[in-house]
């Protein structure tokens, strides 16, 4: 009876968004009487950072401080339409829609400022700190708040903008089978090291090394947070979680958190992450977003590492001790593949 170490590798080519009848998202941006801006979206933030990232994108495009932007995702019934926060599409699709809406709103804001300053709107720039001034003449300036208030209370215009980003439906060519369902891919690679106990069948993940290519990391801390949390989800999927365990009868399945197994605090293996930033040509400021991909590579990498450790190829998740032991028995014993590492 022994512990066997194994290493497994997996790499991912991950499509951003989906292609079921076209993939649009809309955004509406408008200024409020206090000169701050509201971005209305139906793209729900479920903890991944949708609000933070669209807020940054809107502020950057409008040329105003992040603190002056409020993102409202309150109600998907009344807000501008979005396909949803799924398919790793949020940053890319919604971000692009926000840029378009913010550009339109910015143009009106500059026109309003131009009217107040009696200059040409094309000569105006924003300083990102809440001021608009004439290019090369910072003293001829007006605050964004004053410009937005003048628009609303004197000039009678709305400082607002509409945005939509659409990846149209790609039909399959009946002759060649060709299609272009996706415009943008993210990538990941992961190497994991596991230890398998050939007596109990238990698998422990000892170490994870990963590299993620996800366009420009628009908010590096949020990216890191997603990659850490996602790796935990990946570990959980590959070794613990299932609603349909391999038991004689469905009634033995989990009905609550006592029986639905997940790793607990401190169970995540040390995870060494490298983020490669290759700005996407059609992404908002080059961003693609980590999305679902942050959990994906863990699963095949662990399955490969188990094969490397004891020679058991498991193709049904999760990799439970029972499946590992049945595999070892079917093979007539553990058959480690990684002779070199074992000799170490």
């Amino acid at each position: 009876m022994a512990m066997h170490r194994g290493r497994g590798f997996a790499s991912i080519n991950y499509p951003i968004g989906m292609n079921l009848g076209g993939d649009p998202s809309q955004a509406l941006v408008h200024s409020n009487p206090d000169g701050k801006f509201t971005v209305a979206l139906s793209s729900i933030d479920l903890g991944q950072g949708m609000k933070s990232v669209t807020r940054q994108i809107a502020a950057e495009t409008l040329g105003i401080p992040v603190a002056d932007v409020y993102v409202d995702t309150a109600d998907s019934d009344t807000g501008p339409h979005c396909m949803g926060s799924f398919a790793s599409r949020g940053t890319h699709r919604v971000g692009n829609a926000v840029i378009q809406a913010a550009q339109e709103a910015r143009a009106v804001m500059l026109e309003a400022a131009a009217e107040e300053l009696e200059v040409d709107a094309s000569d105006l720039v924003t300083d990102g700190r809440g001021n608009i001034h004439v290019k090369g003449a910072p003293s001829r300036s007006i605050t964004t708040m004053a410009a937005c208030q003048a628009a609303q209370f004197k000039q009678g215009r709305t400082v607002s903008g509409r945005g939509i980003f659409l990846i149209p439906l790609s039909e399959v060519d009946p002759e060649t089978g060709e299609m272009t369902p996706v415009s943008c891919f993210a990538h990941a690679a992961m190497l994991v090291e596991v230890e398998v106990d050939d007596e109990t069948g238990e698998v422990s993940v000892l170490d994870m090394q990963s590299a993620y290519e996800l366009g420009r990391a628009l908010n590096p801390k949020l990216v890191e947070q997603q990659l850490i949390g996602g790796a935990w989800m990946g570990m959980s999927h590959v070794l613990w979680e299932t609603t349909e365990p391999y038991y004689p009868d469905r009634s033995h399945g989990p009905v609550d958190f006592n029986h639905y197994l997940m790793p607990g605090p401190g169970d995540l293996a040390p995870h060494h992450i490298s983020v490669l930033e290759r700005p996407a040509p059609d992404g908002p400021f080059g961003g693609k977003g980590p999305g679902e991909m942050c959990a994906n590579p863990v699963l095949p990498a662990v399955a490969n590492a188990v094969y490397d450790a004891v020679g058991v190829r498991i193709d049904e998740l999760p990799i439970t001790p029972e499946k590992v032991l049945r595999g070892i028995r079917a093979n007539g014993g553990a058959r480690p593949k990684m002779r070199l590492a074992r000799a170490r």
Binding site: G47, Q225, I228, G229, G230, A231, W232, M233, F257, M262, G264, P265, G266, D267, L268
Partner: peptide
């Protein structure tokens, strides 16, 4: 210690963070 922190939050489930940032 880290182990004591883990023990203290072992009754609190988190679905998102992987626990590391909380620890």
């Amino acid at each position: 210690s880290r182990a004591e922190v883990i023990e203290a939050i072992s009754g609190n489930l988190c679905r998102c963070t992987g626990y590391e940032p909380i620890i």
